[in-house]
Design a protein around this nucleic acid. Structure first.
Lengths: 399, 399
DNA sequence: ACGGCTTAATTCACGACCTGGAAGAAGGTG
DNA sequence: CACCTTCTTCCAGGTCGTGAATTAAGCCGT
């Protein structure tokens, strides 16, 4: 329940936002279709659209002939009206990408890192930001914002807590803001991947969904009523540390029986080793593939993988029961490797743990964007804001 | 993201709603304070308030002297502007209560039931509705709505699924609507108890909370951003059937290792019996109290209760990690019995299972309204709607 | 009792907004 | 080139919130 007034200007902003969002989301549309979709009068649509065109946010994009009459002119958000930058701060690398508003990548910069020192991360992100802007030949003032997805939880004041990076209360937002005038948006990496899947991947069209990520660790992005749910201090979605086997294996978080200890790649491989499984791979990912490949020939491998599917199914079922999503999307490198081979078994196993009714309402799919969509998702943050504000770009505080 | 236009009338409705909600929630307020709180201009507040007074929704309620100036007149929602009825459909009884808008009970009717046949339930609810209206001497046309909290999940089209009642797809909403002209609001009983606690109990002031109910069974109400989260088909909140001990005890839902099997009163007592505990009580609740009382003298009882706290803590921790609430409120008859004695231990145990950061942000409390607040919570549904609509009462379709 | 003082609430002209209908523009068809 | 269809723009009409000015209501000191 809101405790905010509405003024006559909010109305216009809101209607601009409705129109702009419709155009952005539902591809090129004619003014007529917009009017039907938004139930705004033709007069208002025309009025608002001409304003948006005037400002350069929207542009005409060809026309469609109709039977005998004047052809309808299609409208789209001008891809080059502004640009956005997305960054991924992972445990081993930093990636920065620049997109136009159609989310086409125009430039990319990668920086491998060994020790994720905050100062180093900030340096690389800012370096990357400058590099992609230069590479794409874009005017810096046209960059709408920088979205950053970081492997850890981000509280409401852009302070990052990340066990895996060894960060405790790092004011990353502030540190970045000091090095650039471009507005910063910070969020959790899992949420950003979720955002990308919701906009451009397997989550399209769903309004209540969970994007579940299984890699070395395990996390999830919760989407409620069309927007990412962050909880009271932005740390919602810590699905990996849900107790799923009371008193079970110790997890790196210190607790016992966490889902991550059973289905995170690290945990799975550890269980495999304990069970006598062997492998020659040095790198975790190769070892995981080796395990999956051994299923046909090794009973131990088969059992481990089977159990993993079971545990993962229980984790999914907990989501199904608790949040009743319409879709669960499985991603993360290990999640995809598992899902590619065992999605049907997984679906079936979820049914064994979940309640009948919510289970019947959920569809379980795989991520479509692979593992590198964090920067893309992060770049949607400034776009989301642009759409929400009806295409009004806040004036840059030029200090 | 909305795809709905805003018109100039929405603006007024929205501002009426803002004002009305503020007055309702934050007690008697002067026009001046309203203006400050809502950031509406004094002129608009005056304008809107006089309209609301004209219509009888709001009334003046005394004044407060100020230092030397004109005293401010306090405003409140007129308690007798309309009335609301709340009903609880439980496994063993039906309760119907009539409230004024200040949520004071004006009349009550109880009906014990043995076999919860849908037809019988409908009959009792309608009977109770007529009875409380007659008893309170209220004009039926002034009854804003009937909220019903039912022990089961309620679909978006008011169809009820309830394993414990043995109901599968019972169109309760439709059945009730046939017997009265009063608008019906149906929802899950746990959500309704949660709603009551959020408005009048331990949840006040929180915007992200979970109300966890432990009785014979186990359930929860999720509150996200100030409103109850229902998921895609209104069955969110099935916390009791979260797998917490993979491969553990069989639950009545058919799955293994559900939280309910460990902390639901039935499950606890079953574990007690298995462990050799004994008791003379016939009724479940008395047996549970007996168990708790035996803790000091019986090692078996102590272990069982201790374990129960542990399992419950893991269940809480899963909520803390996944949804990052600012408050968890424990209720339900068994939950209250446990909480009264072991709340500190429970809080501590949650810390062992939850991640440090979200754990530090949550406060764990007990329900304040006891076990009989379902009808109260259900009655808030029509009130919520009235507030949302800015005090505009939709015309009753008089057939 | 009375005029100044302070604070609260109301009035009013104004600009911003959307709407429905009429008029205009653009392109195709015969 | 007239005519038709399909959109788009213009215009008068009505609604809304706002700020400044005005009125209302009580206090205080003389």
């Amino acid at each position: 329940m809101d405790v905010r007034r509405t003024t006559v200007r909010d109305m216009r902003r809101s209607n601009r936002s409705v129109i702009l969002s419709s155009i952005y989301r539902d591809g090129p549309l004619s003014r007529h279709e917009l009017s039907a979709r938004t139930s705004l009068s033709a007069a208002s649509v025309s009025n608002l659209v001409s304003e948006l065109i005037e400002e350069g946010v929207v542009e005409e994009a060809g026309s469609v002939e109709s039977e005998g009459g004047r052809p309808r002119v299609l409208l789209r958000v001008a891809p080059t009206f502004r640009y956005v930058v997305g960054a991924e701060v992972g445990e081993t690398r930093i990636r920065v990408e620049l997109f136009d508003l159609a989310m086409t990548v125009l430039a990319r910069a990668d920086y491998p890192i060994d020790v994720p020192q905050p100062a180093v991360v900030v340096k690389h992100v800012l370096e990357g930001l400058a590099a992609v802007i230069a590479e794409a030949g874009v005017q810096p003032s046209l960059v709408l914002g920088l979205g950053v997805g970081v492997a850890g939880t981000v509280d409401s004041d852009a302070v990052v807590h990340a066990q895996t990076l060894g960060w405790d209360a790092v004011p990353l937002g502030e540190m970045l803001a000091e090095g650039t005038e471009i507005p910063i948006h910070l969020d959790n990496g899992a949420n950003m991947l979720g955002q990308a899947e919701m906009w451009f991947g397997a989550g399209r069209g769903a309004s209540d969904a969970v994007i579940a990520l299984v890699g070395s660790g395990v996390g999830a992005a919760l989407v409620a009523d069309g927007s990412t749910y962050r909880g009271t201090r932005s740390s919602a979605g810590e699905w990996g540390h849900m107790t799923i086997a009371y008193g079970g294996l110790r997890c790196r978080c210190g607790a016992e029986g966490c889902l991550e200890a059973y289905v995170g790649a690290e945990g799975v491989l550890e269980r495999y080793r304990q069970a006598g499984g062997s492998g020659s791979a040095v790198d975790e990912e190769a070892a995981f593939v080796e395990l999956l490949d051994a299923v046909g020939t090794s009973g131990v491998a088969a059992t481990i993988v089977d159990d993993t599917i079971g545990y993962l199914a229980a984790g999914f079922a907990n989501l199904v029961n608790l949040v009743n999503p319409e879709r669960i999307v499985l991603g993360g490198w290990a999640g995809l490797l598992l899902g590619e081979r065992y999605l049907p078994q997984l679906r079936e196993a979820v049914g064994k743990h979940a309640l009948r009714q919510p289970y019947a309402q959920v569809s379980i799919e795989l991520c479509e964007l692979g593992r590198d969509a964090v920067a893309l998702g992060a770049a949607t943050l400034p776009v989301l804001r642009l759409l929400r504000d009806g295409g009004v770009v806040p004036p840059r505080s030029n200090r």
